[in-house]
Design a binder for these strands. Sequence first.
DNA 1: GATGAATGAGAATTCATTCAT
DNA 2: TATGAATGAATTCTCATTCAT
Lengths: 189, 189, 189, 189
Amino acid sequence: MTAERVQGGGRRRAYDPARRERIARAAIAVIAKHGVADLTHRKVAAEAGVPLGSTTYHFATLDDLLELALLRATQDNVAQVERWAAGLGGYPDIPSALADLVLESVTTQRDETIVGYALYTAALHRPSLRSASEAWDAELTRIFVGCTDETTGQLIAVAVCGLLVQLSLSESVPSREWLRSLFAKALAS
Amino acid sequence: MTAERVQGGGRRRAYDPARRERIARAAIAVIAKHGVADLTHRKVAAEAGVPLGSTTYHFATLDDLLELALLRATQDNVAQVERWAAGLGGYPDIPSALADLVLESVTTQRDETIVGYALYTAALHRPSLRSASEAWDAELTRIFVGCTDETTGQLIAVAVCGLLVQLSLSESVPSREWLRSLFAKALAS
Amino acid sequence: MTAERVQGGGRRRAYDPARRERIARAAIAVIAKHGVADLTHRKVAAEAGVPLGSTTYHFATLDDLLELALLRATQDNVAQVERWAAGLGGYPDIPSALADLVLESVTTQRDETIVGYALYTAALHRPSLRSASEAWDAELTRIFVGCTDETTGQLIAVAVCGLLVQLSLSESVPSREWLRSLFAKALAS
Amino acid sequence: MTAERVQGGGRRRAYDPARRERIARAAIAVIAKHGVADLTHRKVAAEAGVPLGSTTYHFATLDDLLELALLRATQDNVAQVERWAAGLGGYPDIPSALADLVLESVTTQRDETIVGYALYTAALHRPSLRSASEAWDAELTRIFVGCTDETTGQLIAVAVCGLLVQLSLSESVPSREWLRSLFAKALAS
DNA sequence: GATGAATGAGAATTCATTCAT
DNA sequence: TATGAATGAATTCTCATTCAT
């Protein structure tokens, strides 16, 4: 048929990339504040300070927005852990370093952490989010393995994941010493 | 409000004392299938084979239903882990036993596991779910500590949590050997 | 929340700036016909000839709609009384004029009158309607005081109010002569 | 047909008359507090301290309950005004006496007054309430006419009605002096 | 006689999405 | 290109009423 026009290159039009990113950031804030289930165009528009139509203009569907928001949240987290690993050079006490990483994740990086774990739950029923969450797991495991060895790194990766999941819920912050002793145990071979 | 209302229930079934529990079980199935965000009265009613009004009669709000569903899911999980611990007596190889526990959780107990972790995410924004999720954490930690020692038990608890969160997402099941080596590492002191 | 939703509006009509007012007018008609208690989005939408979603788009809550409807009804009534007062110039017989005003209110202006008094009852339990009802009282009193004197005007205001409340209920219309004699009494000082 | 049994006398079964009255009183309280539109079996049952089923057992429909509640409210009001008229004997100052009546109606008798006027609005769209509201009007007019004369009594009746309608809304209570002067004007012939 | 579990009808409201402007 | 008015599908929740117990 002639009705369907397929023209132009394969490149997706970028529209206003800055605004698109700003909306994604606003979505992270909304998810951290209200949860994935309460992510709506209206809340995101209000948070980002853009008109309602702008959110649907830059993201064809709400799932598209969710996808980018969660991708950004996990990328931030990976960047945070990579900075941490880079600073590890003259830091022979890995258990203490891991304790600090966890503490940072549940304090200054709390929003990104919460949104990251919201990803797991959401991805369970949304295939489009799978690749982002699997990539996140893989990246973190890769970094921890790089600091230690294959098995230890994997153990640390799941332990950190479990800790962050549980600590996200808690109002209180665990003691550095307790965290350190836990990781010391994991590294004691 | 009153005028023009000619309605009211016919009656199909007789008094059914188990109905409340049945609805809660149906909610677990719905959450496992569709996620917390898609838990609706309609889906639960269809799953439980009860009329729509029945779900709102027995649970004044959807949060009330969520609360019982998640309580039951975590209680089931704790019972499973307690059976596992009880069977541990003549089982000197704890790493292998833990590997089996994890494998069981992501296969035959998959629904309860998925719903349990959906709890964490949901509890983040619903204070009424906090106590159930915290109780779950505490119970599992208690059991694992009982099998080993204080620090090791806590490490295993967070590692199991992290593993299950990550494995829930995966279509594939990890090898028993890989899981065993991970736990062997955690127990190697 | 997002998954499985494939919905969204087709679009029938173009931008209609008068729609908000039209919905408010339809609400007045519905209240006159069914009472405040039976004011529903559905009835208003049917009366106004707009889709259901349009009523909730233009009025976030039913109370918002009620507020504008009652404001318009009382404004109409004040305008009616003001026209009446303006035509009073060469009309030395105020009792007869008042009788005509009351008769007009329960015949050609019956809807607005009924809706106005529905306001009082509704305002009793809805603070957002208070200002409109108090403004109405004050306006009418002001006009009647302007035609007579302070005390007489106030007496007429409450007598007219009481009459209209009682006559709204009645199927029959009182005689002009009876009304005239009542007001003659009030003005006989 | 034989299926329809019409047995027993014409007398309606009384069940438990005390409870029936208690429920009607509770309904008055609910209407005063929430308005006619929010009169529900549940609220009445809670207010009366009886089980939910009791309200539907004693009143076949909600409209039946509304009917008795409003009848009682207006009967109370008529009784109040009759006591007032009876005490008028050695009370030559009728304007002051009327002021006191109005003040009592909006203070100690406030609930019954509010419910009485809710009657007007409700009766507008519910034929079953018409007779009670018309009887109320007639009774009050009869009493006021008995204290004065035909026309004056009718004027007072509508003025009192208008005053109470307007004062029900107001948080503040008018001064006795202002009320007295208003009635003095009405009686000054 | 009395109770309350059960049910279906319908209420308000929210919101993703479309599309005229 | 960008906006927001418009729409309809679906949601939670309420509640009069019925009827088994």
